[in-house]
Design a binder for these strands. Structure first.
Length: 312
DNA sequence: ATCCAGGTTCACA
DNA sequence: TGTGAACATGGA
């Protein structure tokens, strides 16, 4: 691990949030595996972002009920355009301006959803990763245990990512597509232990080296998604993860062995069921919000035993 | 040991 | 269109 790059404080952002908004469960998800890219306490979150050429670290907390304050640290000159870009990234990553009241009204009518809704009130989808980054994560999740996914993620970040220090914390930062586009398949296989995924990851990097993974415009993003799904290694699950997380489509639900069982238990009362049966039930109960409904169930299941606990 | 993970591709009906 | 094996690796 290289010495951390020291980031300097460059800005303070104050971002309006739409109610109902749950700061803690929006920025920190109890089910998410350890990446070293972020850290959370009861009332504060630290996270790194790549913003254009810059490495940034952000410290987030609520200033008042309607305002999220973000202290920004960076490794170089901070311009107006960088501020705009990070503002858009944060707003989009955490859905700060989304109105989830229609979903809440609908879900309150479904008895098994009452407990998750009460415990996680105001939670939204979170995706601090851009399109490239979430694509990498979903690739690593394919047909692997979380332990192995974490191992592969650690290898990639330690070999190609960065380490930064800001506000007294040390965190990893993601690599960009350009930073891994020259790495060959054998290296991904042997050094990073990616297994058969080694033959796909380079395609992801090539694609996003020529297609901006930070595009904010929704129409462009939909077009990007269509193209992305032609890449080998991107199937229905990976595409749905991106649609649900990065594109923030509340109806997109990527069913895998893990959440399929959790949802079958909660809504069908059985230990497991066929994916299309689970999906049909989610659509019957939560038309238009299948993914967001699934998120509430999954995070509720991990609430008492988080994969990565809050720090003091 | 053998199985199978927070899937996808490819071959062959 | 649909089904089944192969794919890498490592923990249970």
């Amino acid at each position: 691990m290289p010495d951390p790059r020291i980031l300097a404080h460059v800005d303070t952002l104050r971002l309006a949030v739409k109610q109902p908004f749950n700061f803690r469960y929006t920025l920190w998800k109890p089910s998410h595996f350890a990446t070293g890219l972020e850290q959370h306490s009861a009332d504060t979150s630290w996270r790194t972002f790549r913003v254009g050429e810059l490495l940034t670290g952000v410290v987030m907390a609520m200033e008042d009920a309607d305002t999220l304050r973000a202290e920004v640290y960076a490794d170089g000159a901070w311009q107006e355009a960088d501020r705009d870009r990070l503002t858009a990234r944060l707003t989009h990553s955490y859905g700060l301006d989304e109105d989830i009241s229609a979903f809440v009204a609908q879900a309150e009518q479904v008895p098994p959803m009452r407990e998750p809704l009460a415990a996680l009130a105001g939670m939204r989808q979170s995706c601090p990763e851009n399109l490239f980054e979430i694509a990498i994560i979903s690739l690593l999740l394919q047909n692997a245990t979380v332990a192995r996914t974490t191992q592969m993620m650690t290898n990639l970040l330690d070999h190609y990512g960065r380490v930064v220090e800001f506000d007294g914390v040390t965190l990893k930062a993601f690599f960009t597509p350009e930073e891994i586009v020259g790495v060959d398949e054998a290296t991904f296989r042997e050094r990073d232990r990616l297994g058969y995924r080694a033959k796909y990851i380079g395609r992801f990097a090539e694609f996003f080296a020529t297609h901006d993974p930070d595009v904010a415009d929704h129409a462009d993003k939909a077009e990007l998604m269509r193209e992305f799904q032609t890449i080998k290694g991107v199937g229905p699950y990976t595409a749905a993860i991106i649609a649900s997380h990065a594109v923030r489509d509340p109806s997109a639900l990527g069913l895998d062995v893990w959440n399929r069982k959790l949802l079958a238990k909660r809504f069908l009362g059985v230990d497991d069921a066929e994916a299309d049966v689970v999906m049909a039930e989610m659509t019957r109960l939560f038309p238009g919000y299948e993914g967001l409904a699934g998120l509430y169930v999954i995070e509720d299941a991990y609430r008492a035993q988080a994969v990565v606990e809050l720090i003091e």
